[in-house]
Amino acid sequence: MHDQIESILMIRRGAIGDIIFTLPAYYLLRANFPNSKISFLVKENYAQVLKGFPGLDEVWVTQNKSENVLKLWKAGNDILDKVKNSKFQLAIDFSGNSGNAVLLWLSGIKHRWGSIKSSNTLRERLYTNTAVRLSSLASSVSDLPDLHRIDQNLLLLKKGGLTCFPVKNEYIIPPENQEKANTLFSNWGLSLQKPVVFIQPFTGDGIAGKAWPLERYAILAEYWRTQGLQVIFGGGPEDREKLNAVAEQFPVAAGQTDFVTTVGLTTLSSIVIGGDTGLMHAALAAGKRTVMLVGPTDHRRIGPYRHLEWAIRPQQGKFVADISIEQVISATKTALDEVSIR
Rank of each mutant, 00 (worst) to 15 (best):
E215K: 15
D298L: 00
L229H: 12
A91E: 07
L192P: 03
N85W: 06
G236H: 09
I8W: 13
K71V: 02
V246Q: 06
G161T: 14
F250K: 02
E248I: 07
V197W: 03
S135A: 11
N77R: 15
V132T: 06
K84L: 07
V197H: 02
T128Y: 06
S142P: 11
C164W: 01
K159P: 12
G234M: 05
N129E: 14
A31K: 15
A208K: 15
L80S: 12
N35F: 04
A311E: 03
L104M: 13
Q227N: 12
M10D: 00
A254K: 01
G161C: 13
I172C: 09
A75D: 13
I116S: 03
L9T: 11
T277K: 01
N35V: 03
N100Y: 08
T121C: 11
I323R: 00
L9W: 14
R300F: 10
T130L: 04
T332W: 09
I8F: 06
E6V: 02
D78N: 10
I79F: 13
G108R: 13
G274L: 03
A283F: 12
Y46Q: 10
Q48P: 06
P166H: 06
N35L: 09
A285S: 04
Q63H: 11
D276W: 01
K87A: 10
I38T: 05
T121V: 07
F233R: 05
R133V: 10
F259W: 03
Q327I: 05
L144F: 14
L229I: 06
T267Y: 06
L268E: 10
V69T: 14
Y27A: 05
L279N: 00
P251S: 09
